[in-house]
């Protein structure tokens, strides 16, 4: 594959906005998408779709997967295999496995990672009647709405910890950790804390960042745990600026506590960085207090040679 072209893995909101930002700055790009559609999980997000609609002119190679095999990174499609040396991961969140989330017990049918629940629902298929969604965030609420529309009878969102987000009244939110699944053929119940919830379906909607491709830059949900569509757009702008920056000098970033900073490597000419903390709260950036109640903030770092970020009130 031509090394002058920036290969973007994933045509979700961040992959597509990154493509637009890079094209605007005169870069060449190719956007590769595993699925037969674009939009990723933003497809059920009204705010995100308004942005996506404006990106429909960006060419996307559908059903073209980036895979890592035998120590190499390849782009594979119906028309063959291409080697990829460098690119940008925009493949979105990873949903940890039930075992990783501490959910043990039986292994019946009816336990779906978020994306599978979404893919099947988008195909017009009904994934269950009484559904527990584990994880309390923008996407679990959106999926709950979608499932209710698709005919699910009861939906419970299970929040592993207190999260400051609004939920519509018709969706019940329970607090606790899912510890076990019970069911021989199909899910019969899940154990939340010490109480049993009778459902036929469990959707895991807890999200983590990840980058399976070495030498790839990373953007969007694959890079930071943020939930506002605007935050994804910001990561694309920042990465594009960072890539356009000629200088190799860097701004030193020191972080204390559970704070994520984007991009990971901040070049000198980058004027702004994104700070994320899903739990919200306030942080201090070089002594200045910043509000993270939206889960993220973009702060000015122009002219600084180093930045120190810490959680306020700890």
């Amino acid at each position: 594959m031509d090394s002058g072209v920036n290969v973007i893995a994933g045509a979700g909101l961040s992959g597509l906005t990154l493509a637009r930002e890079l094209l605007d700055r005169g870069f060449q790009v190719r956007v590769l998408e595993l699925r037969r559609r674009v939009g990723g999980i933003s497809i059920i997000d009204g705010d995100a779709r308004r942005i996506l609609d404006k990106l429909s002119d960006i060419p996307v190679e559908l059903e073209k997967a980036i895979v890592r095999v035998g120590g190499r990174t390849l782009a594979v499609s119906r028309s063959g295999v291409e080697g990829v040396v460098r690119g940008i991961t925009a493949i979105g969140f990873r949903v940890p496995s039930p075992a990783e989330l501490g959910i043990l017990g039986d292994r019946p049918s009816g336990v779906f990672p978020f994306h599978v629940a979404l893919d099947l629902t988008m195909e017009g298929l009904s994934i269950g009647r009484r559904i527990a969604i584990y994880g309390y965030n923008r996407y679990s609420v959106l999926l709950a709405e979608k499932l209710l529309e698709a005919g699910a009878r009861e939906i419970y969102i299970i929040a592993p910890e207190k999260t400051p987000i609004k939920t519509p009244d018709h969706i019940e939110v329970l607090e606790g950790r899912v510890r076990r699944v019970k069911g021989v053929a199909r899910v019969e119940s899940v154990l939340v804390g010490s109480s049993i919830l009778e459902v036929d379906t469990l959707v895991t909607a807890i999200f983590k960042t990840w980058n399976p491709f070495p030498n790839f830059d990373v953007v969007g949900h694959a890079a930071v745990e943020v939930y506002e569509p605007q935050a994804l757009v910001e990561t694309s702008k920042l990465l594009a600026d960072n890539m356009a920056c000629e200088s190799n000098e860097r701004i030193g970033v020191v972080v204390e506590g559970d704070i994520q900073v984007f991009p990971r490597v901040v070049r000198r000419c980058l004027k702004r960085i994104l700070i994320a903390r899903p739990r919200g709260g306030r942080v201090k950036v070089n002594g200045v207090s910043v509000d993270l109640s939206m889960g993220y903030a973009v702060v000015d770092v122009g002219g600084l040679s180093s930045v120190r970020i810490s959680v306020e009130g700890v």
Binding site: R94, V95, S97, H115
Partner: peptide, 13 residues
């Protein structure tokens, strides 16, 4: 690693 996150839907279809 992703335990079917990207494939189980399509696989069923």
């Amino acid at each position: 690693s992703c335990q079917g996150q990207h494939c189980l839907g399509r696989a069923l279809i």
